[in-house]
């Protein structure tokens, strides 16, 4: 099985420190990928590059419903991608530098107070059509 190279497992407690340490070592932040692993778990992959095009990944696995510490405090440019994840996966972040409250992409104007949009990436499954 092919997997990403240079992956370090991190936990919810030390993700902020690990990201700050990677920036300190001269890595350039690329993006965060959120993956819906199964019914119980999500996975975040923090991707980094350096000018020699080496790649560094931090893998964070956590149970659904957890509030994840935001890295936008140490890394301003992670703000957009964290808001995107908040919209599409309904994962809440603690300490977002600029919080769109779930209106980054999806529109919540039509919803009632307290209600949330269906998080499309986390809950959508496909149903095979019956061929008549």
């Amino acid at each position: 099985m092919i997997v990403l190279e240079n992956v370090t497992e991190v936990s919810l407690d030390n993700v902020r420190e690990e990201v700050a340490a990677a920036i300190e070592q001269g890595w350039r932040f690329v993006t965060i990928t959120a993956v819906d692993l199964n019914e119980n778990e999500f996975e975040f992959i923090y991707h980094f590059h350096n000018p020699e095009f080496e790649i560094k990944n931090l893998r964070l696995t956590f149970p659904k419903g957890t509030v994840v510490p935001s890295v936008s405090g140490v890394l301003f440019c992670a703000l957009l991608v964290e808001n995107e994840i908040k919209d599409l996966f309904h994962i809440d972040f603690e300490g977002l530098a600029l919080d769109y409250n779930g209106t980054f992409y999806t529109n919540v104007d039509e919803l009632e107070e307290g209600e949330r949009m269906i998080a499309p990436f986390a809950t959508f499954t496909t149903v095979q059509k019956n061929k008549d």
Partner: peptide, 10 residues
Amino acid sequence: EEPKPEIDAA
């Protein structure tokens, strides 16, 4: 009218 394919919000 285009039918929306069945995508269930399970």
